[in-house]
Structures are given as C-alpha cells and as structure tokens.
C-alpha cells in the first residue's frame, strides 16, 4: 500500500471539486473493496476523497411511484428498509445473498456498482492481467477461470462483475444518477456497466471524476413474482458462479412482463431483452423456460474450467423462472438450501 492524502468532503460538489483537484484521486465509500485493492497494490491512489459525510444515505419515494436509493445508503440499510422489503423484495433478497453482515453494514450502494472483478489474476500483481495492466495479457484465458465469464467476453478479458445487487438492479431497470465536473446526468442501468472489448480496464461508462449520487428504482418492483437464485461454492460469503434475478408480472399462469438478469457470467449484469420478449404473453411452462435459457446462452463461449457455467446458467434460468412464476403456489420446504442469505 502506498501513502496517500485524504479529504473528508461535506457536499457533493465539494467532493467532485476535490477529486478534480488531485492527480490520482479515488472516491472512498464504504471501502470494502477499494481498501483491499490498495493493500494488494492493485489500486494505488495518491489521494482519497472520502464520501462518508455526504448527505446521500437516504432512501426516499419518487413522484412517479419509484424509490430513490442514496448512493451512500449501506447495503444492509437498503435490504432491511421497509419500502424495499415491501415493494422490491427481489432487491432485498439479492443484497442479502451477498457478502456477510459485516460487509453489508459497511458497503454502500454506490460502491457496490463500482466494485472490481474478483478474477484471481486481477488481484495478483505477479501475473499478467489486461484489466489491471492494459496490454500485459489475460492469464485467465487458459488458466484458472472458474470465476470468469462465458457471455460477452473478449480476447483480452473474460472477467465478471461480482455484484449481486447489480443483478437485481439490472432486472429492475434502475437508473443511475451521477454528478461530475460537467454537472448531473442519468445513466440507464443497462448502459452503466460495459463489456470488456479491447479496453477491459474500463468497468463502466462513468466519465473521469463522476460520482454516483443515487440509484432510482421505477415503480414496478415485481413484488409478487420474483426470485434471486444464486449458485456458489458455499452457502454464504462466496461470489456467484451463476446467479439469476427474475421479476415477472403474471396474469394467472400467463406472463405479462418479464425481466431477468444474470450474474457471474459476464463483465456486466447480463440482460437479454429478446429472451425476455419470448416469455411475454406466454403461458409459464418448463419447455418455454428451457427455450429461453437456450436462447440466452446461444452465443456463450466457455474457457475450459468455466465451461460448466453454460449448462449451469441454463438450468439456473429455468429454475429461477419456475420459482418466480410459481410463487403463489406451494413453496419448496427445502428452498432455504439454495437461497440462503
């Protein structure tokens, strides 16, 4: 870890100015990822603009019936917020499937969007990694890529975005509010994270100095038919091998609206609008779900160790859609085993 200076910002514009005024600056939220990266020498900011005192921790209703999540509201406070629990249970369940209570108490919503990949090579300075050091090569291709992606990968990077929360935000079609040196703007969630292409060092579409201030949820929370299915190597405190967040609007056994996103398989939470369309207006059935799953992974590419994710991903989609569409029916008594927070 290198030496750095630190400013405690009191207001958003002050934070943005402070960041712009320091070469090699980074924003510090809950620190649950950045501090680790600094200890590993992966991130070596010369200056930290600490956001801890900014008034961005509130969760408030929006005029259109949606809900605004402050960027600095913690993951824990968000998951247990009565409005979130009642209207966006998918989000609540998804947050609680991630990390540990201690981490969720520290981690912020804004920071969650910006966490870096958990690809082993990204964290190990002894190894080539295009995301960490552009042009050095990708060790995960042909290496230990159990945690890497099978969709939207490129020849320079197969890393995945590790967040659970973001998978639900993608399915819920949230909007990210940011403020930067050039003022405020909003980014559709689907456009917030990017695919690696030949610039894997860029995880998202934020411009230099831009700060996430809030995440807006639309009014539709899919509170009746939803599921977050997370498959991982142990029951808690493990990143998803594959996860699926589903929100459905049902009319009897007919799917009116379908939104779903996948985690653990790509450089960003993976949406497939064409696959969602295949569900809409259709009667829920395992056959239909299997067709949808096949469509989602039609272009998938496995890299040896992680090739199992293609089949696992398909099965996960089928199961998640079954769970979400059958929510008002009998709940499997052993469901806890696969959805353990």
């Amino acid at each position: 870890m290198n030496s750095f200076t630190l400013t405690q910002a009191a207001a958003v514009d002050e934070a943005v100015r402070d960041f712009a005024g320091h070469a090699g600056a980074a924003y510090l939220g809950g620190g649950t990822n950045l501090i680790d990266l600094m200890k590993e020498n992966v991130s070596r900011p010369a200056h930290l603009t600490s956001l801890g005192h900014l008034p961005l921790s509130d969760i408030t209703g929006l005029p259109d019936g949606g809900l605004r999540l402050g960027a600095l509201a913690t993951n824990a406070d968000t998951a247990w917020h009565p409005e979130v629990e009642a209207r966006y249970p998918l989000l609540s369940q998804t947050i609680l499937a991630g990390a540990t209570p201690q981490l969720r108490n520290m981690a912020t919503n804004g920071g969650n969007l910006l966490q870096r990949t958990r690809c082993y090579y990204f964290y190990d300075l002894a190894t080539p990694c295009n995301k960490r050091e552009p042009g050095s090569g990708c060790s995960a291709i042909g290496g230990q890529n159990r945690v890497c992606g099978v969709l939207g990968t490129s020849a320079s990077c197969i890393a995945t975005h590790p967040s659970d929360l973001c998978v639900a935000l993608a399915a819920l079609e949230a909007v990210v509010r940011v403020q930067g040196p050039r003022g405020e703007r909003t980014i559709k969630f689907a456009d917030f994270h990017r695919l690696p292409g030949n610039q894997p060092e860029l995880d998202n579409t934020l411009q230099p100095g831009e700060l996430v201030t809030a995440i807006d949820l639309p009014a539709q929370g899919y509170a009746k038919n939803f599921t977050y299915l997370k498959l991982r190597d142990r029951a808690s405190y493990a990143f998803a091998l594959v996860s699926v967040a589903v929100g459905l609007e049902m009319d009897g056994n007919t799917i009116k609206t379908a939104r779903f996103a996948l985690g653990g398989v790509a450089h960003k939470p993976w949406r497939d609008p064409a696959a969602e369309k295949m569900l809409e207006g259709q009667t829920a059935s395992p056959d239909l779900f299997r067709q949808v799953a096949t469509k989602v992974f039609a272009e998938a590419k496995g890299y040896g160790v992680n090739s199992f994710k293609i089949e696992l991903g398909k099965r996960a989609i089928v199961r998640a859609l079954e769970q979400a569409s059958e929510m008002d029916q009998a709940i499997d008594s052993n469901a806890f085993l696969n959805s353990n927070p």
Binding site: Y120, Y121, Y123, D124, A126, Q144, D233, R234, N340
Partner: peptide
C-alpha cells in the same frame, strides 16, 4: 502456466461457513 496457486486468500479458497 504460471506455476502458481491462484485462489490464495480466504475469499476464494473456500472452507465452510456456518451456513
């Protein structure tokens, strides 16, 4: 390829949690 253990931390070398 590198002759190196890659999941060299508590996060990625998995041992059971209480759950």
């Amino acid at each position: 390829n590198l002759g190196r253990y890659m999941n060299h931390n508590y996060s990625e070398y998995h041992i059971p949690v209480n759950a």
